[in-house]
Amino acid sequence: MKLNRREALALGAGALFISLTPFRGALASLTEDEIKAFTGGAAVVEDDIVTLTAPEIAENGNTVPIGISVDSPMTADNYVKRVRILAEGNPRPAVATMYFSPLSGSAEASTRMRLATTQNIIAVAELSDGTYHMAKAEVKVTIGGCGG
């Protein structure tokens, strides 16, 4: 059987996809478990309420600056309770849980985190009305940040 260049490339890409699939699946389900543990199984809406700020490309995965901002009036009866930050591609997806209060004035915070590899970062916010909202951001990592 002779392959031309195009077919060979397609085969290669296919094989790569298959070999990566179970790996990605396992990591993604870890993240899903974390989200479920956070929400208690409640539905999560992916919408504009939550904004996740992260660099498109992080040269050093050891300190990647990230910011979260949730659109909320932050009054005593309508505020953001908690925000869970997860990193899909880390050996352990948990990054941090931030707790806000009406005293916060705005649901904005930033920190620096470690990223093992190029991946999606997820922020899930719990509002005081019991709804959950989510945002995702992809960060490309040049040098992973989990030591070795």
Partner: peptide, 14 residues
């Protein structure tokens, strides 16, 4: 543990 060394946090208050 996924938070970087020398943990930095920025937040707001009214």
């Amino acid at each position: 543990p996924a938070i970087s060394a020398n943990p930095f946090l920025e937040f707001t208050m009214k």
